[in-house]
Amino acid sequence: MNTYNIDIKPKKHLLKINFKEIWFYRDLLYMFVKRSIITVYKQTILGPIWFIVQPIMTTGMYMLVFGRIANISTDGLPQILFYLSGIVIWNYFHECFNQTAHTFNQNAQIFGKVYFPRLIIPFAEVLSGLIKFFIQLAIFIIIYLYFLYSGNTTIQPNWTLALVPVYIVLMAGIGLAAGLIFSSLTTKYRDLNHLLTFGIQLLMYATPVIYPVSTVPEKYKIFIQANPLTPVLEGFKYAFLGAGHFSWQALAYSGGFMTILLFMGIIIFHQTERNFIDTV
Protein backbone atom coordinates (compact mmCIF):
# COMPACT_ATOMS: atom_id res chain seq x y z
CA MET A 1 0.00 0.00 0.00
CA ASN A 2 1.48 3.23 -1.10
CA THR A 3 0.14 6.42 0.39
CA TYR A 4 2.94 8.63 -0.83
CA ASN A 5 1.67 11.61 -2.75
CA ILE A 6 5.04 13.20 -3.42
CA ASP A 7 7.39 11.25 -5.62
CA ILE A 8 10.65 12.87 -6.69
CA LYS A 9 12.55 11.05 -9.40
CA PRO A 10 15.28 11.99 -11.86
CA LYS A 11 12.94 11.80 -14.83
CA LYS A 12 9.37 12.73 -15.24
CA HIS A 13 6.75 12.66 -17.88
CA LEU A 14 7.51 15.32 -20.41
CA LEU A 15 4.08 15.85 -21.83
CA LYS A 16 2.03 15.40 -18.74
CA ILE A 17 0.52 18.59 -17.48
CA ASN A 18 -0.83 18.18 -14.02
CA PHE A 19 -3.97 20.26 -14.39
CA LYS A 20 -5.22 19.17 -11.00
CA GLU A 21 -2.14 20.65 -9.43
CA ILE A 22 -2.42 23.85 -11.45
CA TRP A 23 -6.05 24.08 -10.38
CA PHE A 24 -4.95 23.71 -6.78
CA TYR A 25 -2.61 26.64 -7.27
CA ARG A 26 -5.24 28.82 -8.95
CA ASP A 27 -4.95 31.43 -6.21
CA LEU A 28 -1.29 31.77 -7.04
CA LEU A 29 -2.21 32.21 -10.69
CA TYR A 30 -4.55 34.99 -9.65
CA MET A 31 -1.84 36.62 -7.54
CA PHE A 32 0.66 36.56 -10.41
CA VAL A 33 -1.88 38.12 -12.75
CA LYS A 34 -2.62 40.76 -10.15
CA ARG A 35 1.06 41.38 -9.61
CA SER A 36 1.86 41.92 -13.24
CA ILE A 37 -1.10 44.26 -13.68
CA ILE A 38 -0.67 46.43 -10.61
CA THR A 39 3.08 46.67 -10.56
CA VAL A 40 3.10 48.18 -14.04
CA TYR A 41 1.40 51.34 -12.96
CA LYS A 42 2.56 51.76 -9.38
CA GLN A 43 4.10 55.21 -8.96
CA THR A 44 2.83 56.44 -12.31
CA ILE A 45 0.40 59.33 -12.71
CA LEU A 46 -1.64 57.94 -15.57
CA GLY A 47 -1.73 54.41 -14.17
CA PRO A 48 -3.67 51.91 -16.29
CA ILE A 49 -4.30 54.60 -18.92
CA TRP A 50 -0.86 53.69 -20.24
CA PHE A 51 -2.38 50.50 -21.57
CA ILE A 52 -4.38 52.58 -24.08
CA VAL A 53 -1.94 55.40 -24.70
CA GLN A 54 0.53 53.05 -26.33
CA PRO A 55 -1.72 51.63 -29.09
CA ILE A 56 -3.23 55.03 -29.85
CA MET A 57 0.15 56.73 -30.19
CA THR A 58 1.42 53.85 -32.30
CA THR A 59 -1.62 54.05 -34.53
CA GLY A 60 -1.05 57.77 -34.98
CA MET A 61 2.54 57.13 -35.90
CA TYR A 62 1.65 54.41 -38.42
CA MET A 63 -1.01 56.63 -39.98
CA LEU A 64 1.61 59.26 -40.50
CA VAL A 65 4.49 57.06 -41.66
CA PHE A 66 2.83 54.22 -43.54
CA GLY A 67 -0.42 55.96 -44.46
CA ARG A 68 0.63 59.49 -45.40
CA ILE A 69 4.32 59.23 -46.22
CA ALA A 70 4.68 55.72 -47.65
CA ASN A 71 1.11 55.63 -48.94
CA ILE A 72 0.54 51.96 -48.25
CA SER A 73 -2.98 50.85 -49.06
CA THR A 74 -5.41 49.95 -46.32
CA ASP A 75 -7.84 48.20 -48.64
CA GLY A 76 -9.91 51.36 -48.70
CA LEU A 77 -10.61 51.26 -44.99
CA PRO A 78 -10.33 54.18 -42.59
CA GLN A 79 -6.66 54.19 -41.63
CA ILE A 80 -7.25 54.50 -37.92
CA LEU A 81 -9.41 51.37 -37.83
CA PHE A 82 -7.11 49.41 -40.07
CA TYR A 83 -3.98 50.14 -38.04
CA LEU A 84 -5.59 50.01 -34.64
CA SER A 85 -7.21 46.61 -35.26
CA GLY A 86 -3.87 45.23 -36.42
CA ILE A 87 -2.00 46.72 -33.50
CA VAL A 88 -4.48 45.54 -30.88
CA ILE A 89 -4.40 41.88 -31.92
CA TRP A 90 -0.67 41.98 -32.66
CA ASN A 91 0.04 43.52 -29.26
CA TYR A 92 -1.60 40.58 -27.59
CA PHE A 93 0.67 38.15 -29.40
CA HIS A 94 3.65 40.35 -28.66
CA GLU A 95 2.72 40.48 -24.98
CA CYS A 96 2.24 36.72 -24.69
CA PHE A 97 5.47 35.93 -26.49
CA ASN A 98 7.64 38.57 -24.90
CA GLN A 99 6.46 38.03 -21.34
CA THR A 100 6.54 34.25 -21.34
CA ALA A 101 9.95 34.33 -23.01
CA HIS A 102 11.34 35.73 -19.76
CA THR A 103 9.73 33.14 -17.52
CA PHE A 104 12.91 31.47 -16.38
CA ASN A 105 15.30 34.36 -16.32
CA GLN A 106 13.05 36.76 -14.49
CA ASN A 107 11.84 34.26 -11.94
CA ALA A 108 15.10 32.46 -11.27
CA GLN A 109 15.09 33.83 -7.75
CA ILE A 110 11.68 32.35 -6.95
CA PHE A 111 12.25 29.13 -8.87
CA GLY A 112 15.41 28.55 -6.89
CA LYS A 113 13.59 28.61 -3.61
CA VAL A 114 10.08 27.26 -3.89
CA TYR A 115 8.29 24.61 -5.83
CA PHE A 116 5.03 25.24 -7.58
CA PRO A 117 3.90 24.23 -11.06
CA ARG A 118 6.15 26.39 -13.20
CA LEU A 119 3.57 26.68 -15.96
CA ILE A 120 1.64 28.98 -13.64
CA ILE A 121 3.94 31.84 -14.57
CA PRO A 122 3.47 31.73 -18.35
CA PHE A 123 -0.23 31.12 -17.87
CA ALA A 124 -0.41 34.19 -15.65
CA GLU A 125 1.38 36.24 -18.30
CA VAL A 126 -1.09 35.13 -20.95
CA LEU A 127 -4.01 36.00 -18.68
CA SER A 128 -2.70 39.40 -17.66
CA GLY A 129 -1.99 40.05 -21.34
CA LEU A 130 -5.60 39.22 -21.98
CA ILE A 131 -6.74 41.92 -19.57
CA LYS A 132 -4.57 44.50 -21.33
CA PHE A 133 -5.87 43.20 -24.65
CA PHE A 134 -9.48 43.71 -23.60
CA ILE A 135 -8.75 47.26 -22.50
CA GLN A 136 -7.20 47.98 -25.87
CA LEU A 137 -9.97 46.15 -27.68
CA ALA A 138 -12.51 48.33 -25.88
CA ILE A 139 -10.83 51.46 -27.25
CA PHE A 140 -10.86 49.96 -30.72
CA ILE A 141 -14.54 49.08 -30.44
CA ILE A 142 -15.47 52.59 -29.28
CA ILE A 143 -13.76 54.12 -32.31
CA TYR A 144 -15.15 51.35 -34.50
CA LEU A 145 -18.73 51.97 -33.36
CA TYR A 146 -18.28 55.67 -33.97
CA PHE A 147 -17.32 55.00 -37.61
CA LEU A 148 -20.09 52.44 -38.01
CA TYR A 149 -22.83 54.79 -36.81
CA SER A 150 -21.51 57.81 -38.62
CA GLY A 151 -22.45 55.94 -41.78
CA ASN A 152 -19.12 54.76 -43.10
CA THR A 153 -20.01 52.23 -45.78
CA THR A 154 -16.56 50.73 -46.26
CA ILE A 155 -16.88 48.84 -42.98
CA GLN A 156 -18.78 45.61 -43.29
CA PRO A 157 -18.92 43.56 -40.12
CA ASN A 158 -19.99 39.99 -40.78
CA TRP A 159 -20.72 36.64 -39.16
CA THR A 160 -17.02 35.82 -38.72
CA LEU A 161 -17.11 38.11 -35.69
CA ALA A 162 -18.12 34.92 -33.91
CA LEU A 163 -14.62 33.63 -34.63
CA VAL A 164 -12.89 36.45 -32.73
CA PRO A 165 -12.47 34.27 -29.60
CA VAL A 166 -10.77 31.69 -31.82
CA TYR A 167 -8.35 34.33 -33.04
CA ILE A 168 -7.59 35.33 -29.47
CA VAL A 169 -6.90 31.71 -28.52
CA LEU A 170 -4.64 31.31 -31.55
CA MET A 171 -2.63 34.41 -30.67
CA ALA A 172 -2.34 33.34 -27.04
CA GLY A 173 -1.43 29.78 -27.99
CA ILE A 174 1.23 30.64 -30.53
CA GLY A 175 2.65 33.40 -28.36
CA LEU A 176 2.72 31.12 -25.32
CA ALA A 177 4.30 28.24 -27.19
CA ALA A 178 6.97 30.41 -28.76
CA GLY A 179 7.62 32.02 -25.39
CA LEU A 180 7.97 28.64 -23.65
CA ILE A 181 10.52 27.48 -26.19
CA PHE A 182 12.38 30.75 -26.06
CA SER A 183 12.52 30.96 -22.29
CA SER A 184 13.75 27.39 -22.06
CA LEU A 185 16.53 27.95 -24.55
CA THR A 186 17.64 31.24 -23.02
CA THR A 187 18.43 29.56 -19.72
CA LYS A 188 21.43 28.00 -21.40
CA TYR A 189 22.03 30.12 -24.43
CA ARG A 190 21.65 33.71 -23.36
CA ASP A 191 22.35 34.97 -26.87
CA LEU A 192 18.71 34.45 -27.66
CA ASN A 193 17.75 37.31 -25.35
CA HIS A 194 19.32 39.70 -27.79
CA LEU A 195 17.45 38.12 -30.62
CA LEU A 196 14.08 38.41 -28.97
CA THR A 197 13.35 42.12 -29.19
CA PHE A 198 14.21 42.64 -32.80
CA GLY A 199 13.03 39.16 -33.71
CA ILE A 200 9.50 40.09 -32.70
CA GLN A 201 9.88 43.38 -34.54
CA LEU A 202 10.92 41.59 -37.73
CA LEU A 203 8.12 39.10 -37.32
CA MET A 204 5.67 41.98 -37.22
CA TYR A 205 6.78 43.11 -40.64
CA ALA A 206 6.45 39.58 -41.92
CA THR A 207 2.86 39.59 -40.72
CA PRO A 208 0.15 41.72 -42.33
CA VAL A 209 -0.24 44.10 -39.40
CA ILE A 210 0.28 47.38 -41.16
CA TYR A 211 -0.47 46.27 -44.70
CA PRO A 212 -3.15 44.05 -46.22
CA VAL A 213 -2.13 40.79 -47.88
CA SER A 214 -3.65 42.11 -51.09
CA THR A 215 -0.82 44.61 -51.51
CA VAL A 216 1.89 41.94 -51.28
CA PRO A 217 3.49 41.14 -54.65
CA GLU A 218 2.49 37.72 -55.96
CA LYS A 219 5.97 36.18 -55.65
CA TYR A 220 6.28 37.03 -51.94
CA LYS A 221 2.74 36.09 -51.07
CA ILE A 222 3.70 32.49 -50.42
CA PHE A 223 6.02 33.57 -47.59
CA ILE A 224 3.46 35.80 -45.99
CA GLN A 225 0.85 33.08 -46.22
CA ALA A 226 3.21 30.53 -44.71
CA ASN A 227 3.28 32.69 -41.62
CA PRO A 228 0.75 31.10 -39.24
CA LEU A 229 -0.05 34.52 -37.81
CA THR A 230 -1.27 35.83 -41.16
CA PRO A 231 -4.69 34.11 -41.09
CA VAL A 232 -5.30 35.48 -37.61
CA LEU A 233 -4.49 39.05 -38.56
CA GLU A 234 -6.44 38.84 -41.79
CA GLY A 235 -9.36 37.09 -40.15
CA PHE A 236 -9.55 39.54 -37.28
CA LYS A 237 -9.63 42.49 -39.66
CA TYR A 238 -12.08 40.72 -41.94
CA ALA A 239 -14.49 40.07 -39.07
CA PHE A 240 -14.69 43.69 -38.01
CA LEU A 241 -14.01 45.54 -41.23
CA GLY A 242 -15.07 43.19 -43.98
CA ALA A 243 -11.98 43.74 -46.09
CA GLY A 244 -9.24 41.21 -46.58
CA HIS A 245 -9.39 37.52 -46.75
CA PHE A 246 -10.92 34.71 -44.79
CA SER A 247 -10.55 30.99 -45.36
CA TRP A 248 -11.11 27.92 -43.24
CA GLN A 249 -8.03 26.25 -44.61
CA ALA A 250 -5.80 29.09 -43.48
CA LEU A 251 -7.42 29.03 -40.06
CA ALA A 252 -6.93 25.27 -39.79
CA TYR A 253 -3.29 25.76 -40.75
CA SER A 254 -2.82 28.24 -37.89
CA GLY A 255 -4.60 25.94 -35.49
CA GLY A 256 -2.46 22.98 -36.48
CA PHE A 257 0.68 25.04 -36.21
CA MET A 258 -0.32 26.23 -32.75
CA THR A 259 -1.00 22.68 -31.55
CA ILE A 260 2.34 21.36 -32.71
CA LEU A 261 4.21 24.35 -31.34
CA LEU A 262 2.46 24.05 -27.98
CA PHE A 263 3.40 20.38 -27.72
CA MET A 264 6.99 21.23 -28.43
CA GLY A 265 6.91 24.16 -26.06
CA ILE A 266 5.59 22.12 -23.16
CA ILE A 267 8.06 19.29 -23.71
CA ILE A 268 11.00 21.68 -23.82
CA PHE A 269 9.68 23.66 -20.89
CA HIS A 270 9.31 20.57 -18.75
CA GLN A 271 12.73 19.38 -19.75
CA THR A 272 14.19 22.71 -18.69
CA GLU A 273 12.32 23.27 -15.44
CA ARG A 274 13.71 20.08 -13.93
CA ASN A 275 17.26 21.28 -13.72
CA PHE A 276 17.19 24.85 -14.83
CA ILE A 277 18.25 26.14 -11.46
CA ASP A 278 21.60 24.40 -11.87
CA THR A 279 22.42 26.12 -15.14
CA VAL A 280 20.97 29.60 -14.81
Binding site: I6, K12, F111, V114, Y115, I277, D278
Partner: peptide, 8 residues
Protein backbone atom coordinates in the same frame (compact mmCIF):
# COMPACT_ATOMS: atom_id res chain seq x y z
CA UNK B 1 15.87 18.26 -4.12
CA UNK B 2 13.40 17.74 -1.30
CA UNK B 3 11.84 21.11 -2.11
CA UNK B 4 11.55 20.04 -5.75
CA UNK B 5 13.48 23.06 -6.87
CA UNK B 6 15.88 20.85 -8.73
CA UNK B 7 15.62 17.21 -9.61
CA UNK B 8 17.98 14.46 -8.51
Amino acid sequence: ILSQVTSP
